[in-house]
Simulated scan of single mutants.
Amino acid sequence: MKNCMRILSATAVMLAAAAALAGPPVEVTFRNLGTESVKLQLTNANETSTYQIANPKPHDEVKPGESIRFTVQRLVSPDTNGAMLRYSQGRKSCAFSTTFVMMMSGGIKQPKWNKAATPAGGATCTAVNSGFSSNYAWKAEFTMK
């Protein structure tokens, strides 16, 4: 019984430590505004790691007019988080990113959120950050057409 309690206590401590190191979560919504299905493309380490830790996993294919939603929270640092995603259809593709970093300015920590939507092959892509909360969690919406 003592060993069981020790194992449970150690597990609880490790989980609490991991949560303390986690950056603020981002809730990502991806909307396909086009007339054809788009497919997920993982072309770099950032996109692959986003896919691996996303909850639930982004869909491999998003049909026209459909949207998906997932959350990403990295366990690297309480001062950073980000999500990167790329969808494509034929020659068209959109690479999306949203990041949070706690910056030091004059000895004071200040939060900064960034976003990017990079089109290729004639695609139209947008990225919007919103819904900022007191724990620095935020929402990102990516659209592709």
Rank of each mutant, 00 (worst) to 15 (best):
M1E: 11
K2M: 15
N3M: 14
N3K: 14
C4P: 06
M5L: 13
R6P: 10
R6L: 15
R6D: 09
S9D: 10
A10R: 09
T11L: 15
A12H: 04
A12M: 08
M14A: 05
M14Y: 00
L15R: 00
A16S: 15
A16G: 02
A16Q: 06
A20G: 08
L21I: 09
V26G: 05
E27F: 07
F30Y: 05
R31T: 12
N32I: 07
L33H: 10
T35S: 13
T35E: 15
E36I: 13
S37N: 11
N44P: 01
A45W: 09
N46T: 13
E47V: 10
S49C: 07
T50L: 01
Q52T: 06
A54W: 02
K57C: 03
P58Q: 04
D60V: 10
E61L: 08
P64D: 01
E66M: 15
S67K: 15
F70M: 06
F70L: 06
F70D: 06
F70E: 01
F70N: 05
T71P: 07
R74E: 03
S77P: 03
T80W: 08
T80V: 15
A83T: 02
A83F: 10
A83D: 00
M84W: 14
L85A: 11
Q89T: 13
R91H: 14
R91D: 12
S93C: 05
C94T: 05
S97D: 04
T99K: 13
F100P: 00
V101G: 09
M102C: 09
M103P: 04
M104P: 14
G106V: 05
G106A: 03
W113I: 12
N114G: 07
T118Q: 15
P119D: 09
G122Y: 02
A123E: 08
C125E: 07
T126K: 03
A127H: 14
S130A: 08
S130Q: 08
F132Y: 10
F132N: 08
F132R: 11
S134T: 12
S134A: 14
N135M: 11
Y136W: 11
A137M: 02
W138H: 03
T143A: 02
M144I: 02
K145G: 12
K145H: 06
